[in-house]
Amino acid sequence: MITGVSSGFGHEMTQQLLERGDTVIGTVRNTDKVHDLIDSYPDTFDCRLLDVTDVPVLQNTVREAFERHGRIDVVVSNAGYGLFGCAEELSDAEIDHIIATNLLGSIQFIKTSLPYLRAQGGGRIIQMSTYGAQVAYPANSMYHATKFGIEGFCEAVAQEVAQFNIGVTMVEPGGARTEFRYGSAKVANLMPEYESSHGFLTMLDASRGLAPGDPKRMAECIIASADQDPAPLRVVLGSQALSATIERLETRLADFRTQTELAASTDF
Results as ranks from 00 to 15, higher is better:
Ser7His: 09
His11Glu: 12
Gln16Leu: 15
Arg20Asp: 02
Asp22Ser: 06
Thr27His: 08
Arg29Cys: 07
Arg29Asn: 05
Arg29Trp: 03
Lys33His: 07
Val34Gln: 07
His35Glu: 10
Asp39Ser: 11
Asp39Pro: 05
Phe45Met: 04
Leu50Tyr: 04
Val55Asn: 01
Gln59Ser: 08
Asn60His: 12
Val62Ala: 03
Ala65Glu: 01
Phe66Ser: 01
Phe66Gly: 02
Glu67Tyr: 03
Ile72Gln: 07
Val74Cys: 10
Val74Leu: 13
Ser77Asn: 15
Ala79Asn: 14
Gly82Ile: 07
Ser91Thr: 15
Ala93Val: 13
Ile95Trp: 08
Asp96Cys: 06
Thr101Arg: 13
Asn102Ala: 08
Leu103Met: 07
Leu104Gln: 14
Gly105Thr: 02
Gln108Tyr: 14
Phe109Lys: 11
Ile110Glu: 00
Thr112Gly: 04
Arg118Ala: 06
Gln120Asn: 01
Gly123Trp: 11
Met128Asn: 05
Thr130Glu: 02
Tyr131Ser: 10
Tyr131Trp: 09
Val135Ile: 10
Pro138Ile: 06
Ala139Asp: 07
Asn140Leu: 13
Met142Tyr: 04
Tyr143Phe: 12
Ile150Leu: 13
Glu151Val: 01
Cys154Phe: 02
Glu155Thr: 15
Ala158Ser: 14
Gln159Met: 10
Glu160Ser: 09
Glu160Lys: 11
Glu160Ala: 06
Ala162Thr: 10
Val168Glu: 01
Thr169Ala: 02
Met170Asn: 12
Glu172Leu: 13
Gly175Glu: 13
Thr178Pro: 06
Phe180Gln: 10
Gly183Gln: 08
Gly183Ala: 06
Gly183Lys: 08
Ala185Lys: 10
Val187Cys: 11
Ala188Val: 13
Met191Glu: 13
Glu195Asn: 11
Ser197Trp: 13
His198Arg: 10
Ala206Ser: 14
Ser207Phe: 07
Pro212Phe: 00
Gly213Leu: 07
Asp214Ser: 00
Glu220Thr: 10
Ile223Val: 05
Leu233Arg: 15
Ala241Ile: 00
Ile246Glu: 13
Ile246Ser: 09
Arg248Trp: 04
Ala254Gly: 14
Ala264Lys: 15
Asp267Pro: 05
Asp267Arg: 15
